[in-house]
Design a protein around this nucleic acid. Structure first.
Lengths: 154, 154
DNA sequence: GCTTGACCTCAACTTAACTTGAGGTTCTAT
DNA sequence: ATAGAACCTCAAGTTAAGTTGAGGTCAAGC
């Protein structure tokens, strides 16, 4: 029975307040994510949300992806590739990770380019030149005889 | 005189439309940046904006910074360290670069940590553990007995 | 059994970063 | 000298990602 209790305890669903505290987000944010289908909950008889512990990882992943600059809508799309019924396993998560990897790489490159070339390029005039590494590759394609461009796009 | 003409030509101020085309942004965006004091213009007798060529570099820097997730307000604060009257020289720009350097470094390290551990951690469960390298350093400080957190903040 | 802290919904507000539109003016090329 | 392209201002709208608040319900401890 002691064993039963501990099993029950570890699987006990979390309240919205508990998830908020442990995931480091506001309760309203969890409501918002749920509305946007990024997370799910079940309801108690009294209509209160209860979350599986797995939601903590999901929220952590959402925050990670946001940190990389991925919009919530995209995150939602990616998360929706996770299985609906069963708890996602390592492979499910790895697939997600692969999808975001290139965005992450790009962002890191942009950051490094910004850092390394602020000193070197910013004052030298090369920013106006097509070959400047600070320029956004997309700009290069998009332009028709344009001039200076660097590297934005959040 | 031919020389004079070419000098005049290369220093000729740009219209808002020209800047927009060459910088790869909308005219309305330039109006907006001006309102936010990120760029400046002088006016013709007919109240039309004229820009120094230097504005192209400024806009390029703004775009670069935005691309890595720096808010316009911060960009504006940094740009305001550039001289008002005279055209910024390489040292002015280098100063800007220095101001951003540590923030950029931190951010780069943060994202690299994320990248290095994305595959490994996302599926393994350690995301919920305080020691997970994927967690945002800021979360770690901010939390009071919280649980899972990862790495956001665009 | 009742008080108090958590929850619930729904609508409205917020901030950032722009875009769109209306109504009017200036420039430039014919 | 005039048509059409570019400009101008100012107000309002848009999207993302939440937050805030009003008005009402649930549940855990004393």
């Amino acid at each position: 029975m002691a064993q039963d209790k501990s099993t029950i305890d570890i699987n006990r669903p979390l309240t919205v307040g508990e998830v908020a505290a442990r995931a480091g987000v506001a309760v309203s944010t969890l409501h918002f994510y749920e509305e946007r289908k990024l997370i799910q909950s079940i309801r108690t008889g009294g209509n209160q949300r209860r979350y599986r512990r797995e939601v903590l990882r999901r929220v952590a992943v959402i925050k990670a992806a946001q940190r990389v600059g991925i919009p919530l809508a995209d995150i939602g799309a990616a998360l929706s590739s996770l299985p609906d019924g069963r708890v996602p396993n390592a492979q499910d998560w790895a697939g997600l990770s692969a999808r975001w990897r290139s965005a992450l790489d790009r962002r890191i490159e942009d950051l490094i380019a910004l850092r390394d070339h602020l000193d070197g390029c910013i004052g030298c005039g090369c920013l106006s030149i097509t070959a400047c590494p600070l320029r956004n590759p997309e700009d290069r394609l998009a332009e028709q005889g344009a001039g200076a461009q660097l590297l934005l796009r959040p």
